[in-house]
């Protein structure tokens, strides 16, 4: 449009143009869609958020006493605490799978009376301060608790301040993560496949085992990882209900907390170990995680 003489057409202003590099043209041709550059009002807060999340981790790395790492870790109860943390959170996750998946199914697939109330109750630990959970566990299963009293009198079983208590505290706090994830997947799953399985002669339990479970497997894995990670980091309910006995109930987060007073360097290193374990889990399950996120 290069008209030499000004005419009536020139009153229509030309649309604003930008320069597209060849590279950008190729990208848009391949991926489709328009510009991928972020406007400043979105980009700046996003950068602040990233900085806020990443800077503390950097601080951990910068302050870590790398040269003395081995000696400090060896001298502390790190190995013991890590071993305790790993096995208790794994057992807690297994318990959550065994009873939490059936619970998720009942919540998603039945219309028993009072189901709404039950759903609210089982998701309560998601928002409940963990310390409150610990106090509640103590009041129920403690030596004078309304259930713990009889466990003690009749069977001589004392739960508080034992490794069992650690597992219970972790399960209490972490299981809702699994239940909520799996329930959502069950609700979203196409019921048509279950109908098809029924017409092929599969009874309800067979349908669940051979069709429903495999179809929600990615979400099941995601939920189990969430649950495990939450159990691994559990602090408040554990220290309230199980205390802090090295080797028996002192999990990694509790060890970090106590080390911070006595030996800050050890606290930093213990934190790094936990960070490492978490990152390893995330990376190891990245594919499943992302796939379930996309589904």
């Amino acid at each position: 449009m290069t008209s030499p003489a000004p005419g009536p057409r020139d009153r229509v202003s030309a649309p604003a143009a930008v320069r597209l590099t060849a590279r950008e043209r190729r990208r848009r041709a391949v991926t489709g869609g328009g510009s991928r550059s972020a406007p400043a009002p979105l980009l700046l807060p996003a950068l602040v958020a990233v900085a806020f999340l990443v800077i503390p981790l950097v601080g951990l790395l910068v302050r870590a006493p790398w040269s003395d790492a081995w000696r400090i870790l060896h001298g502390s109860q790190a190995a013991e605490a890590l071993r305790l943390s790993l096995w208790t959170s794994t057992v807690a996750t297994l318990i959550a799978l065994v009873v939490g998946v059936p619970l998720a199914w009942v919540l998603a697939r039945t219309d028993l009376p009072g189901l709404r109330v039950i759903r609210a109750l089982v998701t309560l630990p998601l928002v409940l301060p963990p310390v409150v959970g610990g106090v509640a566990l103590l009041l129920a299963f403690g030596r004078n608790g309304f259930l713990g009293r009889y466990l003690d009198q009749w069977f001589g079983i004392t739960i508080p301040f034992s490794s069992t208590a650690v597992v219970m505290a972790e399960t209490f706090v972490a299981m809702p993560f699994l239940v909520v994830t799996v329930e959502g997947a069950l609700r979203a799953a196409n019921r048509g496949y279950e109908e098809a399985a029924a017409t092929l002669g599969a009874r309800r339990m067979t349908v669940f085992r051979r069709v429903t479970l495999p179809m929600v497997a990615p979400s099941l894995a995601a939920g189990a990882v969430l649950c495990w990670a939450r159990a691994l980091g559990e602090f408040g309910a554990t220290i309230t209900f199980a205390g802090s006995f090295p080797g028996r109930t002192q999990t990694m987060p509790i060890a970090v907390y106590y080390a911070l007073e006595a030996d800050p360097d050890a606290a930093i290193l213990l934190s790094l170990v936990l960070l490492l374990v978490s990152v390893a889990v995330l990376v190891g399950l990245r594919d499943r995680w992302l796939r379930s996120g996309a589904a």
Partner: peptide, 20 residues
């Protein structure tokens, strides 16, 4: 008689082949 107990073959419009 529940669906699983009926000697019926059903071909669904969207086939519903088990993806796994």
């Amino acid at each position: 008689v529940e669906a699983a107990q009926r000697p019926v073959g059903f071909v669904f419009q969207d086939y519903r082949l088990f993806p796994h």
